[in-house]
Design a protein around this nucleic acid. Structure first.
Lengths: 230, 230
DNA sequence: TCCTGTGAACTCGTTCACAGCG
DNA sequence: CGCTGTGAACGAGTTCACAGGA
């Protein structure tokens, strides 16, 4: 099937491969840091180094957005930042509610990288009466009974789930019923949600276990097939 | 090249694809939860459902470890748990040091899922004199000046980096120089490390941005190539 | 007959080499 | 001439269909 007229690489309708989307967020951070250091123009090689990838894959990733570089020269750092932000939808305003204000929820509420780049925390919700109505990072904590009302009033479009594992699915169901379709979960469980809901998981125990796997293999190099063959 | 004698699928020397390793940790959790509910035997279909994957890929993942199921029946939940744990290296003891005892470091120190399954927190380290020598979750916080001595004394083999972005690379270098080769970082930067060092990153702002990308696309269904073609 | 284990087909992602433009 | 943008080759990962043992 030939491309339709008006549908070139830079068209926002063109879906960006998931692996590219993940890397685009890294490029954005690398660009920020380069711009902070006074960089105006950057080559694919330089940006790739800063992002910890190789330059062909960076160019291929950027090509999904369109042709925003200058051949023989490189990319305008500011302009490229805007293009990536726009492609990722970071120019819209994202209203984040943190559900569960324990140690982790508190850490997130105070996390500076959270507020930057279009994400604003608009609500904190907790079940513990000792926490409800206290102030955490300039926001008053709401009671979980009022969850649905708070989500509606604040026009929350992203929820961050920091509740104990045992109530994570239940709370997730309430979020979905309240019309939330983007959830970032810190609970170490597989959440069951309808197809239209996007769930991303941040999971420290999985990451630790992956580290353990690699460390274990590094400890036993003599078990490798090559050395065993000799 | 034919397989060498003694090198079958279940041999620990056989490298497990990264994508499978990540899922194996999920199966482990799903199995735990099934066992807690009294399950003794489980089919690939049931376990796959609990883990949120399809059954062929679960069977393929398990086949990297060996043939631990019974055809026509399924898997013994306890036995399979032991086999996966062993393949991931979770039977060894992993000594974790938390570097940076801010909000996030504190949250991790108290995180129950952390201590379970072979991971034990053995040290807390911070640069803030107000925090040093205080007790956090039954451990005394050590000064960052003593980092190298603490890592050696506690025989730390995994470090968790929860320090501010600005000092993350510097602290990472010190960890590497002190002989640490497994690092879990919460800092939103690309850490430069030698090849033999494994770094895993947990990155909330990346995850949020990925959610934003999908939510943005869901908001504008009319831009899809199919509907535009009509 | 049931459900596991696995080659073979296929899809997705990465690497490469170079055409093309400034 | 330099660096971007991209088709084409390659490799990793997933799906499928079914062979094969309990």
């Amino acid at each position: 099937m030939p491309d339709l007229p008006g549908l070139h690489a830079g068209d926002p309708a063109r879906r960006i491969p998931p692996a590219s989307v993940a890397r685009l967020t890294i490029y954005l951070r690398a660009l920020n840091s380069l711009i902070a250091d006074g960089t105006e123009r950057v080559s694919s090689e330089e940006l790739a180094d800063a992002a910890g990838v190789n330059s062909p894959i960076l160019r291929k990733d950027l090509s999904h957005l369109g042709s925003y570089g200058t051949r023989g020269v490189g990319y305008d750092a500011q302009f490229l930042t805007r293009q990536i932000s726009s492609a990722l939808g970071l120019t819209l305003d994202w209203r984040v509610a943190i559900i569960g204000v324990g140690n982790l929820g508190r850490a997130l509420a105070g996390y500076p990288g959270f507020v930057s780049r279009g994400f604003g925390i608009v609500a904190l919700v907790d079940a513990d009466q000792l926490v409800v109505d206290t102030e955490v990072g300039y926001l008053r904590v709401s009671a979980v009974d009022e969850l649905e009302a708070v989500l509606e009033r604040t026009r929350t479009n992203i929820a961050v789930l920091c509740v104990p594992t045992s109530v994570a699915q239940e709370m997730c169901d309430r979020l979905v019923d309240a019309g939330i379709s983007s959830i970032l979960s810190f609970a170490p469980v597989v959440l069951q949600v309808p197809d239209h809901v996007q769930v991303r998981k941040v999971d420290m125990s999985t990451e630790l276990q992956i580290l353990a796997y690699h460390a274990q293999r590094a400890q036993e190099p003599d078990l490798g097939p090559i050395s065993r063959a000799q």
